[in-house]
């Protein structure tokens, strides 16, 4: 009788244990990976004391430097392009009633989420190989365009969600008060949409920064990004340098995801802070 005074309808035996195990499973490998990035020794299994030497060696590794800069250039360009395209697409798909071709457009935008990455990667490999032969251009724009394409749905989702949650009356009030469509967009829609745009851009950035498969297939020789550089390293003897690079990448992703979470959760923009 004293065991359970009230009957908890939500309780299911064993579920909390499984859940806690699940969380431990999710985080244990990552935590160990981070811990060993600070290992003084060469091993990623035997702890030999605390040291930052692997961060220093990664920092001084020219290949890592190159790959980092390339990753950042691609992620920045791709997220800007994808977010701009996504804002426009979101405006077109939410601000008007369902139109002819809506489902095709919607499927197109979400296509990168549905089609296996390896298939897209192969397709781009073939297609870009043809263009490379035809034009002789082998620069970064292939990667930037490929990344922009698969970033579009990630940028599109939070922006669309934000637009759908927005009061249509506000835009109508703007039009009623003599605002032309462009000025209403600048003064009413965009300031309110801003958190969604920022969230979309951040997601796109993370997705681009993390991509392995498409980059691996599309890149020309000497165009390693951080993830493809790491993938190459995994074939060799692994030193905690890889852990150090991973830790930095993890930190960036986690920071952006938490920022994203706070942005979308806070919902409404802070009142009165937009002049």
């Amino acid at each position: 009788m004293a065991r359970s005074r009230s009957f908890d309808v939500r309780r299911q035996a064993g579920f909390p244990a499984v859940a806690i195990t699940c969380f431990i499973l999710l985080y244990l490998p990552i935590i160990l990976l981070v811990v060993y990035s600070f290992n003084a020794g060469k091993s990623i299994a035997i702890w030999e004391g605390f040291s930052l030497q692997w961060y220093v060696s990664a920092w001084e590794n020219e290949k890592v430097q190159d790959a980092t800069i390339r990753s950042l250039i691609i992620a920045t360009c791709a997220s800007v392009i994808a977010t701009s395209a996504a804002v426009m697409a979101a405006l077109a798909t939410t601000r008007s009633p369902k139109f002819k071709g809506y489902s095709v457009v919607f499927a197109m935008i979400n296509q990168p989420l549905m089609i296996p990455e390896i298939v897209t990667a192969v397709a781009l490999l073939i297609f870009f190989a043809m263009i490379k032969v035809a034009t002789g251009y082998t620069g970064l724009w292939y990667l930037i365009l490929a990344h922009s394409a698969f970033c579009i749905p990630f940028a599109y989702m939070p922006i669309r969600a934000r637009l759908q949650g927005m009061d249509l009356n506000l835009e109508q009030a703007g039009a009623d008060l003599y605002g032309t469509p462009w000025r209403v967009f600048r003064r009413i829609t965009l300031p309110q949409l801003w958190p969604g745009v920022l969230a979309g851009a951040m997601l796109a950035f993370v997705i681009s920064l993390d991509d392995v498969v498409i980059t691996e297939f599309v890149k020309s020789a000497g165009q390693d990004t951080l993830p493809t550089y790491m993938l190459g390293q995994l074939r060799r003897v692994i030193t905690p340098e890889v852990n150090a690079i991973s830790t930095v990448l993890l930190a960036i992703s986690v920071a952006l995801v938490i920022a994203f979470y706070l942005l979308t959760k806070s919902g409404k923009p802070k009142q009165g802070d937009v002049q």
Binding site: L26, L33, L209, D210, V212, M230, S246, V257
Partner: peptide, 12 residues
């Protein structure tokens, strides 16, 4: 974890 690099998680 979902938004962190898939390669890094596999490596972990």
């Amino acid at each position: 974890p979902f938004w962190t690099n898939l390669l890094i998680r596999t490596f972990a």
